[in-house]
Simulated scan of single mutants.
Amino acid sequence: MSSFQPSSSFIMSPHNYHFGSSTSGSFHASDDSFSATLDVGAYAPEDLKVSVVGRHIVIEAKHPEKADELGLIERSFTRKFVLPKNADPESVSSNLSSDGLLTVQVLPPKPKEVSPSRTIPIKIVTGETPNGTEKKN
């Protein structure tokens, strides 16, 4: 089974996209961040699920059969996005607006604050030599 890997120029710039037959939206990704907005107005909040599975962000939606102007309809979709290579899977977040737009984001990692100087504590070890073996008397 092959895995779709879009070119880096495709990933790096924002795109508007039609996500299948019933959802549209936009997305942007880089090596350390990601943002996708999908129109999921046909689904109630309880019909939606966002998860991280391995190195993929998985968005699932399914609503039960219901009546519309043409009769009965049941909709569902699963959309998977590759998690950016430098992104922390724990940093994935999602928001659903009142007008049915689901936004899934991975923010770039915050740079670690580097202290201009710090003191390194010296651990006192008794009964051992510097290489970790026990001293013999």
Rank of each mutant, 00 (worst) to 15 (best):
76 S>D: 09
8 S>L: 11
21 S>C: 13
89 P>A: 06
38 L>I: 12
85 K>N: 05
58 V>C: 12
1 M>D: 03
92 V>W: 00
85 K>G: 00
122 I>V: 14
50 V>C: 02
24 S>P: 00
75 R>V: 04
103 T>H: 04
74 E>Q: 15
43 Y>M: 11
6 P>T: 07
63 H>Q: 15
38 L>Y: 03
134 E>A: 15
120 I>M: 10
51 S>Q: 05
42 A>C: 07
85 K>W: 01
15 H>S: 12
24 S>F: 13
28 H>V: 11
4 F>A: 01
127 G>I: 13
81 F>A: 00
87 A>C: 15
107 L>Q: 15
29 A>C: 08
70 L>E: 14
40 V>K: 00
39 D>Q: 11
66 K>W: 01
116 P>H: 03
73 I>M: 06
86 N>P: 00
35 S>R: 14
72 L>W: 08
1 M>R: 03
98 S>W: 01
83 L>Q: 02
80 K>I: 02
27 F>E: 03
11 I>W: 02
137 N>S: 09
27 F>V: 01
84 P>Q: 01
75 R>N: 15
128 E>N: 08
121 P>D: 14
71 G>E: 08
70 L>F: 14
83 L>V: 04
95 N>K: 06
22 S>R: 07
67 A>L: 06
66 K>F: 05
19 F>C: 07
45 P>W: 01
34 F>L: 02
31 D>Q: 10
92 V>G: 00
42 A>N: 12
53 V>L: 07
14 P>E: 10
134 E>G: 07
34 F>Q: 05
92 V>F: 00
9 S>E: 14
25 G>M: 00
79 R>T: 11
121 P>C: 11
34 F>H: 09
92 V>A: 09
124 I>K: 15
118 R>Q: 09
1 M>Q: 03
96 L>Y: 02
31 D>F: 07
80 K>G: 01
133 T>P: 03
73 I>V: 15
106 V>I: 07
55 R>L: 10
36 A>E: 01
75 R>F: 05
131 N>K: 03
64 P>L: 02
112 K>H: 09
124 I>M: 11
13 S>N: 07
104 V>A: 03
53 V>E: 14
65 E>P: 09
57 I>W: 04
5 Q>E: 07
36 A>C: 13
23 T>G: 06
67 A>S: 09
5 Q>V: 15
38 L>D: 04
129 T>K: 14
88 D>M: 13
49 K>G: 01
67 A>I: 09
63 H>M: 10
61 A>E: 01
77 F>V: 04
16 N>E: 14
32 D>R: 04
72 L>N: 12
52 V>R: 04
117 S>R: 03
110 K>Q: 15
68 D>T: 05
129 T>C: 04
58 V>L: 09
54 G>S: 08
118 R>I: 06
31 D>N: 15
71 G>L: 11
75 R>K: 12
3 S>M: 02
